[in-house]
Each structure stands twice: as structure tokens, then as C-alpha cells.
């Protein structure tokens, strides 16, 4: 996936360079400026994620999300999903392992959905672009939505 992204970027850059050198230089300048603009927040997020994941281990998560945990477990799952930021290629095997070790489908659905759509850790960056209110509304709606997904999963699975 990363390789594809680099290929596209390099192709686009070469094409741009063929068309206009000035515009390409301008594009790179803009790229650097917008990167440097958001870099402090990115770096802070990385450290917060590291700290959170060091404290909240998979074993601890699986303890909280047992099959018998019911709606309480769903809420905890959505809350854990909201504050953590785990890449998908780690989250799905983790979710599969949690299912095997006794977590319910509802809890897992709430965890996965909140993990992807709600970002408490990234909210400072989101507010930087969309303002406080939009970030709050979007994240609250996404949190409620992950509970709805859990409910549907409980019925369907």
C-alpha cells in the first residue's frame, strides 16, 4: 500500500516537473509548509498513543470485554476504542483473538467501530482544521453510531 502511494506520488511529481518547474517547486514548498504546520500535533499524538498502548495491554482489554459483560461491556469497548488509536492490521487480529478468548460480537463491533471513527487523541488536530464544535459533534455522533453498530451486530450475528 505504501509502495503504491510512493509510486503515485513520484509519477505525479515527474509529470508536474515536465509541465512546469516553478509550479512543482511551489507544490513542494506548500507540501513542506503544511507538514511543518501540523508536525507538533502529530508528534504529540505519537507519544500519547505510545503511552496509552503501553498502559492498556491486549490482556487488560480482553478482561474488560467478556461475553457476559453486556451493555456495560459494549460501553467500555466503545470507550477504549475511542481513546486508543491502533492501526487496522493490529486491531483486527486483536479483535479476532478477543473473540476467541471470550469477548462477544457486540463488544467487538463497538470496539472496532469506535476505534476507527472516534479519535479522542487526534481531536486537537481535528479542531485545528474544523474548529471545536464540528470536532465535538462528529466524534459524539460517531460514538453513538458505534453503539448502534453493536446493537445491530447483537441482533444479526
Amino acid at each position: 500500500m505504501t509502495a503504491a502511494l510512493y509510486t503515485i506520488a513520484i509519477l505525479a511529481l515527474s509529470f508536474s516537473l515536465l509541465k512546469s518547474k516553478e509550479k512543482t517547486v511551489l507544490a513542494l514548498k506548500k507540501a513542506w509548509k503544511s507538514f511543518e504546520n501540523i508536525l507538533p500535533q502529530f508528534l504529540s499524538i505519537l507519544i500519547i498513543i505510545g503511552l496509552l498502548l503501553a498502559v492498556l495491554t491486549p490482556e487488560q482489554i480482553s478482561k474488560l470485554l467478556g461475553r457476559e459483560s453486556g451493555w456495560y461491556g459494549v460501553l467500555i469497548a466503545a470507550a477504549i476504542g475511542s481513546i486508543t488509536l491502533v492501526p487496522g492490521f493490529i486491531a483486527f487480529p486483536l479483535a479476532a483473538a478477543l473473540l476467541k478468548s471470550g469477548a462477544g460480537y457486540m463488544q467487538i463491533a463497538a470496539f472496532i467501530s469506535a476505534l476507527m471513527m472516534v479519535g479522542i487523541v487526534t481531536i486537537p488536530v481535528e479542531m485545528e482544521y474544523f474548529g471545536k464544535k464540528a470536532a465535538a459533534v462528529r466524534n459524539t455522533a460517531a460514538f453513538v453510531f458505534s453503539l448502534v453498530i453493536a446493537l445491530v451486530m447483537g441482533v444479526v450475528m
Partner: peptide, 10 residues
């Protein structure tokens, strides 16, 4: 991030 931001600049 490098390819993402380069594409954004372009």
C-alpha cells in the same frame, strides 16, 4: 506522510 503531503502540494 511524505507521499501524502507531496500529493497534497501538487
Amino acid at each position: 506522510l511524505p507521499p501524502v503531503f507531496i500529493l497534497l502540494g501538487l
